[in-house]
Amino acid sequence: MNRLRSTLTDPLVLATLSILVLLAAGEALSPGFARGDQIVRLLVVSAILGLVAAGQSLVVIGGREGIDLSVGASISLGAVLAGNVMAGQDGSIFLAVLVAGGATFLIGLINGLGVTMLRIPPLVMTLGMTGVVQGALIVISRGIPSGNAAPALMAFVNRPLVFGLPGILILWALVGVLMWVLLRRTRLGYAIYAIGSNERAAELTGLPVRAIRTLLYGLSGLFAGLTGVIVIGYTGNSFVSVGDQYVLPSVIAVVIGGISLAGGQGNYFGAMLGAIALTLLTSVLTTLQLEFWGRQLIFGAVLLMLMLLYGRAGRLRA
């Protein structure tokens, strides 16, 4: 009985089960929902969310109430910068990635410095940063959609590359492997869990807690910026609020995947499953012709329900 309960509250099991249930529900509501090419399309959308969630995972695992609400603004910034640098030219893709990634990495580092050196709560720091970046974006672009994706980038995101899978899915799988290597096979990864689990103990074992946490926010910005590049590849052009819709989902995906908001727990594989489950949920809700507000409502409810569920499970374990 106990084993059954602990298996059922294992986030990975829960995420996998919800994916299967949602697939079945989608197929029942609209036959063809679970067809191969449809699933590939869903995975592409999941991959975009999954890339943001990679940075979000790192920040949340790093602890001290870690959360990055500025990922939306960084995605928008990345998309606008990349779109303008590329201006539809394949030859400029590399430069676009560099500029978008560099700028958002820097913004993330500033978040990190605010959180570690000035001890601003992450929620406030990253929310404030969102305002700053969005304001700057509107000033720069005057609110008009600008920039064009290069054809090669659009193909990379939308067209099959190998085994009928678009390049973006290969990239996502690669990020998954890299995240595993980072967290489980490097000293830095062990340090991330350590500072997330007990900051004081981490300091007393010689870890540079502030530097590591600052880096995590930097990486979150970087992942968001790169996601912005993918987003413009997905949609073709960019506008200043394109990233907003990813903020809440990136947090929910992380929580579905079993990464504790208290820090020091969980892994990116769970967040990947979370991204897929959440994308499926969105898709099923769209099939039901639920409006944007309805989806937001359900997202919020899912997040709160998960907090309740895992909060209880955590207490039972302790």
Partner: peptide, 15 residues
């Protein structure tokens, strides 16, 4: 001062 709560014994020794 010492425990990495929720982490493995391996990680707790390794730090």
């Amino acid at each position: 001062d010492a425990a990495f709560h929720g982490r493995s014994i391996f990680e707790n020794i390794a730090a």
